[in-house]
């Protein structure tokens, strides 16, 4: 039943997928860059600065999504002791950290021409910075705590805190008055981004996701080989 939880099966499956990802990654990135920087129209008030949205928004989504899956995996590993979950979350963490950083930096670059300031301590921006620290905490606690039982406990505690923070990030713009504007793209509600801008946005998201998959595969392989290397001595 839990076939994908078996490390061997998962590993073989991933190696099969990797080839096709590599083939479509480069064209998707090129198409999305052409759309984002040249073909897409400028905004009616913001002008060309709206193009920063095409890197800022997808990377924020990835940062948030990555954190929620990491927390889920950590909790799964804490309760059921699933080794594969441990390896997957270790491979995901650096990706999430990088995209969180990208989201914050591009956001503040976008803030200067539109709001008139690089940084404001409003609820959305502050909670996003807190998310970055949560990523760092999780990475440090599995890297530097040698005792695996203890580190999985610590990670579980951090991820619960992090999940609450994630909730605050998501809903801060609706609960409180913030400088940051409310969400434009809603899965269930109305989307306030025009179609001609939604297309490059989704292409960019696809490109970023493919990049994430590529990094994840490399990371996962590294972790597996590391694990197997320890096993070699027991042969």
């Amino acid at each position: 039943m839990f076939n994908f939880l078996n490390i061997g099966n998962f590993f073989v499956l991933l190696n099969k997928v990797s080839k096709s990802i590599k083939i479509i990654f480069v064209p998707v990135i090129i198409i999305s860059l052409v759309f984002a920087l040249y073909l897409s129209p400028k905004d009616y008030i913001q002008g060309d600065t709206v193009r920063i949205m095409y890197v800022h928004v997808p990377s924020s989504w990835i940062a948030l999504g990555c954190f929620s899956s990491i927390s889920f995996l950590i909790i799964l590993n804490f309760i059921f002791k699933i080794k594969n979950a441990l390896i997957i979350f270790k491979s995901l963490a650096p990706i999430g950290l990088s995209f969180c950083l990208i989201s914050i930096v591009t956001g503040s670059i976008w803030g200067q021409p539109t709001w008139g300031t690089f940084w404001a301590w409003d609820a959305r921006l502050t909670s996003m910075l807190v998310l970055l620290f949560f990523y760092l905490l999780i990475i440090f606690s599995y890297k530097f705590i040698k005792d695996q039982n203890f580190s999985s406990k610590i990670c579980a505690v951090i991820s619960v805190f992090g999940l609450i923070n994630l909730f605050i990030v998501k809903y801060s713009v609706d609960f409180w008055s913030t400088l940051h504007q409310p969400a434009s793209v809603n899965i269930f509600g109305e989307t306030s981004v025009h179609k001609s801008m939604l297309l490059p946005l989704s292409f960019m998201l696809l490109g970023f996701l493919l990049y994430c998959a590529l990094i994840f595969l490399m990371k996962y392989r590294t972790e597996i080989i590391r694990m197997k290397k320890k096993g070699l001595k027991r042969l």
């Binding site: 650096p94 990088s98 950083l101 200067q112 990094i215 990371k219 590294t222």
Partner: peptide, 21 residues
């Protein structure tokens, strides 16, 4: 602004890629 945002993104991705590799 636009180019610095895109270049920053590219650099971070490149560094992550090279480190992982």
């Amino acid at each position: 602004y636009v180019w610095s945002a895109f270049i920053f993104t590219f650099l971070v991705c490149l560094i992550l890629f090279l480190k992982t590799k």
